[in-house]
């Protein structure tokens, strides 16, 4: 990406129309087959939800959703043929989302863990490091 401007160094300012935009047209069958795949995945995910896999239901559903989302992003949204930076943008947004959810859950799923420890090994506030009491 460091070269965007550099590659246009020879164009200078007002060279309108010099580098015209030429669309990248995909064959129709790519769209149709993507659509069919999305429909099939939808049917699968609904069907699977009637089977009880315990905790795995969530992960199966998320896996299928991610397959669908990748199809939409790569093909319908043209990321596969696009400037790579746009893919970087999308992926990094997901990384930040992961940080957000992950770090927040490092709190919410771990509350109250210290209480039982403190209950088993009560702290002497006047001697927190056990320096005055004789070592066992």
């Amino acid at each position: 990406m460091a070269t965007h401007s550099d590659t246009h160094a020879d164009v200078h300012g007002h060279a309108h129309g010099g580098a015209d935009h030429v669309p990248h047209v995909l064959p129709l069958k790519i769209y149709i087959s993507t659509w069919i795949a999305l429909m099939v995945f939808t049917v699968i995910t609904v069907a699977v939800s009637y089977v009880d896999f315990g905790d795995f239901n969530l992960w199966i559903a998320m896996l299928i959703a991610t397959c669908k989302a990748s199809l939409v992003a790569l093909l319908f949204m043209h990321l596969r043929w696009d400037e790579r930076f746009n893919s970087i943008i999308l992926v990094s947004s997901l990384i930040f989302l992961g940080i957000f959810i992950g770090f927040t859950m490092s709190d919410t799923d771990n509350r109250g863990r210290a209480e039982p420890i403190e209950h088993d090994r009560p702290l002497d506030i006047k001697d927190p490091f056990g320096l005055q009491s004789p070592q066992q």
């Binding site: 200078h12 129309g17 580098a19 015209d20 935009h21 400037e83 746009n86 943008i89 997901l94 989302l97």
Partner: peptide, 23 residues
């Protein structure tokens, strides 16, 4: 400078906007 840069700039702008939607 060129139509191509204009098009790609707009597209990058949209993608950055989509980041905000995702978050």
């Amino acid at each position: 400078p060129t139509a191509d840069i204009q098009f790609n700039s707009g597209k990058m702008g949209i993608w950055l906007f989509l980041v905000t939607e995702i978050l």
